[in-house]
Design a protein around this nucleic acid. Structure first.
Lengths: 220, 220
DNA sequence: AAATAATTTTAGACTTGGCTAAAAATAACA
DNA sequence: TGTTATTTTTAGCCAAGTCTAAAATTATTT
């Protein structure tokens, strides 16, 4: 089925809300995601429901149908592959790739995306460490913890971030922290829940509680 | 100024018609280019005129203003750079790149297109041999002739095609003719204006009059 | 459990870009 | 040059996606 960009954006929003909350996505939550009014969302939910892309009951929120889920997954695949292209090949900083990929993901051509995937070497994760579904829509899973949950003395490596805002990513740039950076936990301050860590550059930095819970790491 | 895709497509159409005819583009000609009705074109011309992107007088056709010309040129730059990407990097055949580039050209990011340009090695011509304007909108010129105009015995090299249709390009594929192919003119049949040529592979082929005038060559 | 608050839906309107049919202007021809 | 043919514009309508304001439903609080 041929969808408009608006329809695609709603499906992606519902996918993300479903994923995060494990509940039907509320009208307001969707409205925030796509930056529009609740009234517009209601209109669109009725339309998407008419096309059997979502399950929707008045006042009860929306969740993706099988075909809606497939569409959303392919969009995420396209988005993340384009992010890899922008980051790996065009050398964009990681905080700039999202907005451009948001446009690129709507280009319609399976042929294109599969060739791009090959050109990029079939990457499994995007520049923020999010998994890239394969052509069949399967996500690669990975053993990962949040930095917050680890004990003093633990050594680990940054493999992902759960926050994608430009200021947050730029803050990490300033701290010389990027994917692959090795981190050793030196201290955990219970007062403000900040953490003192040593990086693989042997430098020590303090990570505040606005940073720590957003870092996904692999134990080493 | 922020333009819609529809507006951009009209500007490109007017650019191409202006370029080919050296006259204001007629409503009907534009309608054919963008596959719509004459009435819709009139509406859009009024809108574009209101934004000072074109010069338009009722019943007299449209031509690009300076700002319209700049916009159209940048679109052509984006289109042709994406074609190079698809052809050189993703290995698409030359007859498939146009349609995908038609979508990609609307992605808005100067940053993106300039990085892409560098990534591709600042190519001056696209996969059909059309010149790619630089960031300032200047087109590279080239000494080229149409194959038709050359005498028997002349040796030359294919540097461009003036016809971009899929069947035409596939026909050339079948003849093993591509950009860079060397051609020596053996015979010119005055009856049907076909031409017998020898390629750099030493094979002889007959080029009919539906082919010959669409081949742009450089003398060697 | 009733009253208030928050969320969601409906109703009606606007913009963009398209359409058809009819009117107006221009071009072509006899 | 007058008449017909073609092109272009106007007029009125439609669908998508948005909006605001008001009504309906659900949730929360006292």
């Amino acid at each position: 089925m041929l969808l408009t960009q608006a329809e695609e954006n709603y499906l992606k929003a519902i996918f993300k809300i479903n994923e995060k909350t494990n509940k039907p996505a509320s009208t307001n939550a969707i409205a925030k995601h796509v930056s529009t009014s609740a009234a517009s969302v209601t209109d669109m939910l009725q339309k998407l429901s008419g096309k059997s892309l979502i399950h929707y009951e008045k006042y009860k929120g929306a969740s993706l149908s099988e075909s809606g889920n497939k569409t959303a997954t392919q969009l995420i695949r396209k988005h993340r592959l384009w992010e890899v292209f922008l980051f790996d090949k065009l050398k964009f900083p990681w905080e700039e790739v999202h907005d451009i990929a948001e446009e690129l993901e709507h280009i319609r051509s399976d042929h294109l995306i599969n060739r791009l995937d090959n050109f990029l070497g079939n990457p499994r994760f995007d520049p923020h460490g999010d998994p890239i579904p394969n052509a069949e829509g399967k996500f690669m899973l990975r053993n990962q913890s949040t930095l917050e949950s680890l004990p003093i003395g633990q050594k680990c490596m940054l493999v992902g971030v759960t926050e994608h805002s430009v200021p947050f990513l730029q803050h990490l740039n300033g701290l010389k922290i990027k994917l692959g950076t090795q981190i050793k936990i030196l201290e955990k301050q219970s007062f403000d829940r900040s953490m003192i860590v040593e990086l693989d550059t042997k430098t020590q930095v303090t990570l505040s509680h606005s940073v720590v819970p957003n870092l996904l790491v692999k134990l080493i």
